[in-house]
Simulated scan of single mutants.
Amino acid sequence: METNNSLPFLDLLITRNNDNNFNYSVYRKPTHTNRYLNANSHHHPTQLNSVIETLIVTSLRLTEKHNQNYELNNLKIILQQNGNKLHQINVKNLRHKNSEKNNVNDDRRVLISPYLKGVTDKISQT
């Protein structure tokens, strides 16, 4: 049901203007706690980074241009509350825009091992 000219749909909040146009922004339920995977937890860095990248991409895709600064600033606060450093958040934002994977053929073999903080980081290649 529409409330105050707004209708939440999945992660999107659709708001109807006075001129019957629509605005879009990220929707969070009233029970949302802003808790995500803590940056200090024992998870592989790629998993920790994916939290940042996913939230940034979602914010950029769902929010209209004039609301993006507000949403990204809010997101920075939330990510810092979850143990992320400000430079990680900014780097991930820029890195996502320029990210391309190189398709290099080589004969390397893959070793899959459990993640152990401080150990796996030293023997893996990024």
Rank of each mutant, 00 (worst) to 15 (best):
P114W: 04
L111Q: 15
L55F: 06
I78F: 01
Y70W: 05
L12F: 12
L75A: 05
K97V: 14
N69S: 15
V110H: 15
R16A: 07
L79V: 00
I52E: 00
P45N: 10
P114K: 09
F9R: 07
A39F: 02
L116T: 13
M1Y: 07
R109T: 10
G83T: 01
E2D: 10
Q80P: 01
N93M: 10
L86W: 01
N103V: 13
K85C: 07
S50H: 05
N105I: 14
P30V: 09
R108Q: 15
V51A: 00
L48W: 02
S41K: 07
T54Y: 01
N98T: 14
S124E: 08
N93V: 11
Y70L: 09
E64V: 06
L48M: 02
L12A: 05
E71W: 02
N21E: 11
Y70C: 08
H44L: 03
I112N: 12
D107C: 15
N69G: 06
N40K: 00
H43R: 03
K97F: 08
I78Y: 00
Y36M: 04
N4A: 10
L94K: 14
R16W: 03
T120A: 05
G118K: 03
Y36C: 01
K92Q: 14
K65D: 14
L60G: 06
V26M: 04
I112Q: 10
V26F: 02
T46D: 15
N103F: 12
Q68V: 04
T3D: 06
L79N: 02
S59T: 13
N49C: 06
Q125M: 11
L37E: 02
L72G: 00
D121E: 14
A39L: 00
N105C: 13
K76E: 00
N38K: 04
L55N: 07
E100R: 14
D11Q: 07
N34Y: 10
P114R: 09
R109Y: 15
I78D: 01
I52Q: 01
L94T: 14
N20I: 03
K92R: 12
D19H: 13
L62T: 04
H42G: 08
K122I: 11
L116V: 12
L48S: 01
T54M: 02
L86D: 05
I89H: 01
D106E: 14
K76D: 00
N84E: 02
P45R: 10
S59L: 05
Q81Y: 10
S6R: 15
N93F: 14
L13S: 05
R16H: 09
N98I: 12
K101T: 12
N18C: 03
R35F: 08
N84T: 00
H87T: 09
D106S: 14
S113A: 15
E64H: 08
N67D: 11
K97N: 10
V91F: 10
N98G: 03
N4R: 11
H44Y: 05
S59H: 01
Q68R: 13
N49H: 06
I89E: 03
D107Y: 14
L75T: 07
D121N: 07
K97P: 07
Y24Q: 12
T120D: 11
S41M: 06
N90H: 08
V119S: 05
H43W: 02
H32F: 15
R95E: 13
K29N: 06
N102H: 09
R16Y: 09
K97T: 12
L94M: 13
L75I: 06
S59E: 00
T63S: 02
V110I: 15
Y115A: 00
F22G: 09
H96M: 13
N102W: 12
E64P: 04
N49M: 01
